[in-house]
């Protein structure tokens, strides 16, 4: 913030404020190339390798690698404050808690759902479908 406002700043050599970290073009292009490669890999793997129930984990693993690439380079996490990174990561932690605890319950009562006869109660007509039926 100390630098002169009227000085024309060019792409090279001029001092930038301390919070300004441009990412190099090479890094951006390399990241993009890696992302495209992983996209192709995940499609090929999912469609041609018979992996059964591991498939989803492989797909999600590749997706996570891609997500990390985007976060680290495109979203500048490498240069960001640790606190901001912590905040963002905590979002995923709480989403995981939400998912984990909900799943741990719902997994159990599926037996009760399967055992019960299919629900026979009244089907409520959605509001947007009402005009058509009357």
């Amino acid at each position: 913030m100390a630098h002169d406002s009227h000085q024309q700043v060019s792409a090279e050599g001029t001092p930038l404020p301390s919070f300004n970290h441009p990412i190099s073009v090479t890094t951006l292009l390399a990241t993009f190339a890696a992302l495209v490669m992983f996209t192709i890999v995940t499609v090929v793997v999912a469609k041609s390798l018979p992996m059964g129930r591991f498939e989803i984990w492989v797909s999600l693993g590749i997706a996570t690698v891609k997500a990390l690439l985007v976060m680290l380079f495109f979203m500048h996490m490498l240069h960001d404050k640790p606190f901001n990174v912590l905040i963002f990561i905590s979002g995923f932690v709480f989403a995981a808690l939400f998912m984990g605890l909900t799943l741990s319950d719902s997994e159990h009562y599926q037996d009760d759902i399967r055992a019960a006869p299919s629900f026979e109660g009244a089907q409520t007509t959605p509001i947007l479908a009402r005009g058509a039926e009357e």
Binding site: Y109, D112, I113, A115, A116, S118, F119, G121
Partner: peptide, 16 residues
């Protein structure tokens, strides 16, 4: 209440 018994009756599944 006298049995201290309570269980939700959820549509689409059995409760025991």
């Amino acid at each position: 209440p006298a049995f201290r018994l309570k269980h939700d009756v959820v549509p689409g599944r059995f409760g025991t």
